[in-house]
């Protein structure tokens, strides 16, 4: 309990563990790079940008997912929602012909997001109205979005030629890559939503005890549907960024990121049972994964080691979370 002085010293340490971990791995790669090559790892614009872009791609899936997980649900469909949005945007750009300007690209983005919203609505309908457990329901829509994206793309990657789309994916604003700006703005919006609005309060309460919000007169079904729409929209924006970066939409654009997005949320302090988690935590989680990804490549290790490393970090994150509860006496 709170009278235990040992626990009260450990508590801030535990809540800051992901920060400490992030700084730790940055220091590790920095020292490694200096010892091996005599060069800096972190203090190079290119490296910083690469890490930030990788983190942004993870974040775009993880932001909406954080809200869903705080509410005690899960959304497995986001990987292919990203792919669907990417493909749909590319198809619309292509249909409008080459060099059609910003109007066409923005139009294509809106249609891409609309496709994502359809998946989100489907998830919300399954979970909120039909009471399908979200793990199963979104696994179903994972398949539907995947198949849908492959069908509309004709099973191929949809390449486009559009300078506007390319500059959306590869340009920068004051030296900050556009995808990073987009992810940063969405992170701010989600942070505001989760910590400063009634919607956010109800999301936390829903994760802790559904009856508490239901009896408080909150429309829980509508709330759940909104959560899945938000999750789909941030994942959809991830698809738009993908199409911009690579001048092509691919159905499997988000598939390799899904696991990383889930990992970022849990590394950031969320719990599978709901009621916990923050956007700040998720942002740090995404950066931890991005640093590991980029750092291992930078160190010249076979890239497959990144899967092992991220897997280990997930396990460490869960162990830290458990011992935190034990040491500080919190019941979960």
């Amino acid at each position: 309990m709170s009278t235990n002085t040992g626990a009260s010293i450990l508590k801030p340490l535990f809540s800051a563990w992901s920060w400490i971990f992030l700084i730790g791995i940055l220091a590790f790669f920095e020292l490694y790079a200096r010892a091996e090559t005599g060069q800096t790892f972190l203090f190079r614009i290119y490296n910083m940008q690469s890490i930030a872009i990788a983190a942004s791609q993870i974040l775009l899936l993880a932001l909406g997912l954080t809200l869903v997980i705080v509410a005690g649900q899960i959304d497995l469909s986001i990987g292919f929602t990203t792919g669907l949005s990417a493909v749909v945007m590319a198809l619309v750009v292509r249909a409008m012909g080459p060099d059609t300007g910003w109007g066409a690209v923005i139009m294509a983005m809106m249609v891409g997001i609309f496709a994502a919203v359809v998946v989100g609505l489907l998830n919300g309908w399954l979970v909120a109205i039909l009471n399908v457990p979200s793990f199963i329901g979104t696994l179903g829509t994972y398949g539907i979005a995947r198949g849908g994206a492959l069908i509309v793309a004709g099973g191929a990657t949809v390449s486009i030629r559009s300078d506007e789309a390319r500059s959306f994916g590869n340009g920068d604003i004051l030296g900050i890559p556009v995808p990073v700006v987009v992810a940063g703005l969405l992170a701010l919006a989600c942070h505001y939503l989760l910590t400063h609005t009634r919607f956010g309060v109800h999301t936390y309460a829903l994760g802790a005890n559904r009856a508490s919000v239901e009896r408080a007169g909150v429309n829980v079904k509508r709330h759940l549907i909104w959560l899945f729409i938000i999750s789909a929209v941030t994942a959809g924006v991830g698809g738009l960024v993908y199409t911009g970066r690579f001048s092509a939409g691919a159905a499997n654009a988000g598939e390799p990121i899904l696991l990383y997005a889930v990992a970022a949320v849990f590394i950031g302090g969320a719990s599978l049972t709901g009621g916990q988690g923050t956007i700040t935590g998720t942002v740090i989680g995404a950066f931890i994964i991005a640093v590991i990804q980029f750092g291992l490549v930078f160190s010249g290790l076979p890239p497959y080691w990144q899967f092992v490393a991220v897997g280990l970090v997930i396990i460490v994150a869960v162990l830290v979370d458990q011992s935190k509860d034990k040491l500080t006496g919190a019941q979960s």
Binding site: Y204, A205, G207, A208, N209, S212, V213, G275
Partner: peptide
Amino acid sequence: YQDLALADNL
């Protein structure tokens, strides 16, 4: 209600 319907994390 018996279970109080509190949100324990708030």
